[in-house]
Simulated assay, not measured.
Amino acid sequence: MNAKDQSSDLAGEAADKRGPLPEHIAIIMDGNGRWAQARGMPRIEGHRRGVDTVRMVSETCTELGIGALTLYCLSSENWKRPQEELDFLMELLQQYLVEERPLIMKQNLRLQVIGRRDRLPEKVIAEIDETIRVSADNTGTKLVLAIDYGGRDELTRAAKLLCEDVQAGKLSIDQISEQSINDRLYTSRLPDVDLMIRTGGELRVSNFLLWQLSYAELWVTETCWPEFSRIEFERAMESFQNRDRRFGGLSVGQ
């Protein structure tokens, strides 16, 4: 019996007594390098194996009708890593965009990329833009890749855009609001994150979607990304469904 057969029926009868599935899931895909080193392999092999997990997670989100899936692929701080590893990550990203493009289309995924573009190789940018172009009319899950992304950098960028609009007379200081800030984020067309998953066991958000995670439910597993299974992914969603999300208020009856 495979993992898909063993998985819980999140969208079926078993879910009737639970809350709704998350609309937007964000994942910190951690532990690739550690997983590989623990097995006597180079760190880059962990990144290679992690692509299979990306495929599984996106397929599962498609099947369950999840609105958006955001994956933390490369942080703005990751440029501190060895150049050999960074070069491999760029090659792997380019390869993923080319080889997975038919599957992205088959799954009806809409690709979106958030983060800086100016430090990415031109060949990677070209494949990003092509995959965004061909998937633009798809109507399924939004697959959002956070590449050269940092939450503080995103907020700084939004602040600069607000200042420019105030200076240009397009906006008054009194008109600055949570909504006006949100409108200037990379994720302005996405709902806030409902569920944030982190693999690899670390208990931090690592400068990821700082604004968007304000009321997200957090779920952390010791499992490293290359071994993260569909069963465990669905357990995270089931945990979300069983939580009482009060958003600062009280539960019904309290």
Rank of each mutant, 00 (worst) to 15 (best):
E154Q: 07
E154L: 05
R189Q: 14
D153G: 10
L162N: 03
K170V: 03
Q167V: 12
R133K: 15
R184M: 07
A136T: 10
G201T: 06
R198A: 05
R198K: 04
I173Y: 13
C163K: 15
P191I: 04
L195N: 01
L185W: 01
S180C: 02
G150R: 05
R133P: 00
Y186D: 01
E178F: 11
G200K: 08
N138Y: 06
E164Q: 14
Q167K: 14
R198S: 05
D148K: 03
V205A: 11
D192W: 04
L203S: 12
V166A: 05
V166D: 04
L143H: 04
V134S: 04
V166T: 05
D148H: 04
S177V: 11
T199W: 10
A168W: 07
S206Y: 12
K142I: 13
I173L: 15
D165H: 02
K160W: 13
L161K: 12
V144Y: 02
G169Q: 12
N138Q: 14
S206W: 14
A159Y: 05
G201H: 06
S180F: 02
T131L: 08
R198M: 08
I173N: 10
R133S: 08
L161S: 07
I132W: 03
I181A: 01
A136F: 09
L145R: 01
D192H: 11
C163S: 15
V134F: 08
S135K: 04
E130S: 09
L195C: 03
L162D: 04
Y186W: 13
I147Y: 01
E164N: 08
I132D: 03
D165I: 03
A168D: 12
G150T: 06
S188Q: 08
T131P: 00
D129P: 01
G201K: 07
R204Q: 09
N138C: 15
P191V: 05
E130Y: 10
G140M: 11
R157C: 04
G201L: 08
Y149D: 01
E202D: 15
D137Y: 06
D137H: 12
Y149N: 01
Y186L: 03
R152L: 14
R133F: 07
L161W: 06
L203W: 13
A146K: 09
I181F: 08
V144I: 15
R204I: 11
I147L: 09
K170L: 13
D148N: 11
A136D: 09
A168T: 05
I197S: 00
Q167H: 11
T199E: 06
R152Y: 12
A168Q: 09
I132P: 00
R189N: 15
S188E: 02
I173S: 12
S188I: 00
S188C: 07
I147S: 01
A168F: 07
L185S: 00
L161Q: 13
S206P: 06
I197Y: 02
Y186A: 03
G151D: 07
L145K: 01
A168H: 05
D192K: 12
I176P: 00
L185D: 00
E202W: 06
G169L: 14
I132R: 13
G200H: 07
D129A: 07
L185E: 00
I132F: 03
V205H: 06
Q167R: 13
E130T: 09
